[in-house]
Design a protein around this nucleic acid. Structure first.
Ligand SMILES: [Zn+2]
Ligand SMILES: [Zn+2]
Ligand SMILES: [Zn+2]
Ligand SMILES: [Zn+2]
Lengths: 150, 150
DNA sequence: CGCGTTATTAATACACGATATCATCAAATC
DNA sequence: GATTTGATGATATCGTGTATTAATAACGCG
């Protein structure tokens, strides 16, 4: 595999001492192109569409590894079994989840860098990312709820 | 069931139009006394220790309901299948997860009420809670990593 | 209170996402 | 290119969570 055009996230894999295998790079590529919130099944299907020789277990192992490196993060949309994986671009991700219809609304600004620096000092930790989730009713569902009181 | 000493969270269940059944109150009690981060299996066992007649499915349904009401929230500690459920006291919860040893460090202050108010205005949502997770290395693991470069 | 309505439950069989295993393979290093 | 060692892939298996439905109990009302 040529070293030209190694994605920054692939570089992070290597820097952490892991081999840049076909399976891992394919999973990473699928998640990067996925646009957020893919379930494991969606990821499995897309990985297989790219390269059918990649095994099921390797996909899950790659997801675990990327999670440990704070490159992606599993999170629940509805409370049922399957998590969805989101990229943590620049180490963070933020969304609102509607607890009624499960819609996800992403937002960008969080203003948490100061808090992160505080925590690193106070708790002696070394932070690499964060996920911020708000729960509540989206515009449609809260309108609906109000009209239910007519 | 007597109405005296109805916990605030039980009251929220009722206010939202749900019946205060034995199964729900037992699950809620287990989670409240659990001190955070219980897996579904732990919850199942404890519920059964309190009242063996409560069925498996009812426990999961209760967890789903409490999640929809933003009373608890499922979250991943390690990236493997089983989520842990945390209470969202006063609607929020915050922790640091060590991506190396899976230790969880809780912290209290988040300063997110202003952001929440902003989002409610901008996105026309009605927020009832939030979860903030930081990822990184805890004090022990980051010390260990430094000494690995000797 | 006791009654009727209706949401909720319990039991179990099942679905399906995730994992353990281990022989094989290939990425990195020299 | 050969060596080392981490990573892979096929599959059998596990275990969490779900569907189903008749039976039950919470709650409002008289
Ligand atoms: Zn909604
Ligand atoms: Zn952020
Ligand atoms: Zn640690
Ligand atoms: Zn908070």
């Amino acid at each position: 595999m040529s070293n030209t055009s190694l994605s920054p996230r692939a570089q992070r894999l290597r820097d952490a001492g892991h081999k840049l295998t076909n399976a891992r790079l394919t999973v990473l590529g699928v998640v990067e192109r996925g646009g957020g919130h893919l379930t494991s099944t969606e990821i499995l299907n897309r990985v297989n569409a790219v390269d059918a020789r990649i095994g099921r277990a390797s996909v899950f192992r790659a997801l675990d590894l990327l999670t440990r490196l704070s490159i992606i993060r599993p999170t629940y949309i509805d409370s049922s079994i399957t998590p969805t994986y989101v990229l943590l671009p620049d180490g963070h991700h933020h969304h609102v989840i509607c607890t009624h219809c499960n819609r996800v609304i992403e937002f960008e600004d969080c203003g948490l860098s100061k808090l992160a620096a505080d925590l690193e000092r106070r708790l002696h930790v070394q932070l690499s990312g964060h996920l911020l989730e708000f729960y509540g009713l989206c515009d449609r569902c809260s309108a609906q709820e109000r009209s239910a009181f007519n």
